[in-house]
Amino acid sequence: NIFRVLGDFSHLASIFILLHKIQQLKSCSGISFKSQVLYMLVYITRYLDLPWTSSPYNFIFKVLFISSELYIIYLMARAYKPTNDPNLDTFHVEFLLGFAGLLALLFPYKYTILEVFWAFSIWLESVAILPQLFMLQRTGEAEAMTAHYIAALGMYRALYIPNWIYRYFSEPTHKVDTIAVTAGILQTILYSDFFWIYYTKVMRGEKFKLP
């Protein structure tokens, strides 16, 4: 459906915006390396089923997400390392890993390796933006491209919510993926403050600056 497709392309667009920002400004300043590593972990643990992915659409996106994230991490850790300031990127990711790990172990759909890792990836994704938002809060402002990146990334999961509602009514089984839906709503709530400032400032041509 349209929400799902727009969501996935928003996700892809966010990655292109981020790569464009890093390469055009030859800098990864303002980007949280910790959030990027968490996204890498999200992709690895979610796409363990990559070799068995039957849908070409999903397969292509999975390969694109994993490879582009690897490239972003390479750029941040090697090519543009001097522009990456660890003193601003100080969020304690062990809390996020603990949160995702605990929920994955307590409530997986099934106690299999794939299911536990899948649940872990869903919960981890829901909070993986926090180091980035924390960094933004510390610097108080962001380059336009960084703000566009975070907005597109947040829009992706937000668009999954109408997708789930649409699927619930349009598919005869009326299935609800409780883990994905709960985590997706949590993820979107975490972005809400950012979305508000993005809407009131950046979309009106102003700089992204915290009040």
């Binding site: 799902r4 759909y109 999954y160």
Partner: peptide
């Protein structure tokens, strides 16, 4: 499988 949604999303 009952209870396990098909992982057809990203």
């Amino acid at each position: 499988e009952p209870g396990v949604p098909i992982k057809d999303e990203l």
